[in-house]
């Protein structure tokens, strides 16, 4: 699955003086406020954070409220699906008009009928609606199936993905993996690597993390005001 990356961020968190006796808690609280919301600066949705180091020296801002600026280095796990990347999600609802999915347990996705390739046909089996492939009898998508699909667009506010099942290499993961073993060797190695789990991907991203390392101190400063309001 694509769309996940690890970023190293140098942050400066401004803490209200009233929280000066519990700085680390206040920092974590502030970081938690980033979770599950799209952040333009990070260009993604923060899914998890890991504080690497906390600068023991903090700068006190002169002013009526002497906010404390704590510097810290954080590893962030970001979710940023871009158009034409492949995501994986679990089918939660299936109708003739659309397939509804949940990606990573929090983001909803929909694949409308017009974005499902003609290979698939909606049938009713034992009272349940399923999408079955015309060419491969075993390739079936039903509620509970994990499928791989292509991102068409991403609504950043609601974290809603619009997907598509048009390309050939999309569909039920179970079937794709099995099928590719038999059909194409080239493809297999690629697909297998993908299916071996997010962990490898994540590690790779972490290794290549330098490119995503962001120094966003400057930008954070700009958004400081907003933060103050939130805090107070």
């Amino acid at each position: 699955m694509e769309g996940l990356k690890v970023a190293k961020a140098n942050l400066k968190v401004y803490i209200h003086p009233s929280k000066s006796n519990q700085v680390s808690r206040a920092v974590l609280r502030e970081l938690s406020s980033l979770l599950f919301t799209y952040n333009e600066i990070f260009d993604g949705v923060v899914l998890a954070y890991d504080v690497n180091s906390l600068d023991p020296c903090a700068k006190i801002l002169p002013g009526i409220n002497p906010y404390i600026g704590v510097k810290l280095k954080v590893n962030l796990l970001l979710f940023s699906p871009k158009p034409d990347t492949l995501l994986e999600g679990k089918v939660v609802k299936l109708t003739q008009e659309s397939i509804h999915l949940v990606v990573l347990g929090f983001s909803s996705a929909i694949i409308a009928e017009k974005d499902i390739r003609e290979e698939f046909l909606c049938k009713t089996k034992r009272g349940q609606e399923v999408y079955a492939s015309r060419t491969n009898k075993r390739h079936v998508i039903k509620v509970g199936t994990v499928i791989r699909f292509l991102v068409k667009s991403f609504d950043e506010e609601i974290l809603h993905v619009y997907g598509s099942l048009i390309p050939e290499h999309t569909g039920s993961i179970y079937w794709l993996d099995k099928n590719l073993e038999v059909v194409s060797h080239n493809d297999r190695s690629e697909k297998k690597r993908k299916s071996e789990g997010e962990q490898i991907m994540l590690q790779q991203h972490a290794v290549n993390g330098e490119l995503s390392s962001l120094d966003i101190v400057q930008k954070r400063k700009n958004s400081k005001k907003l933060k103050h309001q939130e805090e107070s």
Partner: peptide, 10 residues
């Protein structure tokens, strides 16, 4: 909430 897991937050 089942279809849109973040709906309860809203």
């Amino acid at each position: 909430a089942d279809l849109v897991p973040l709906a309860p937050l809203r």
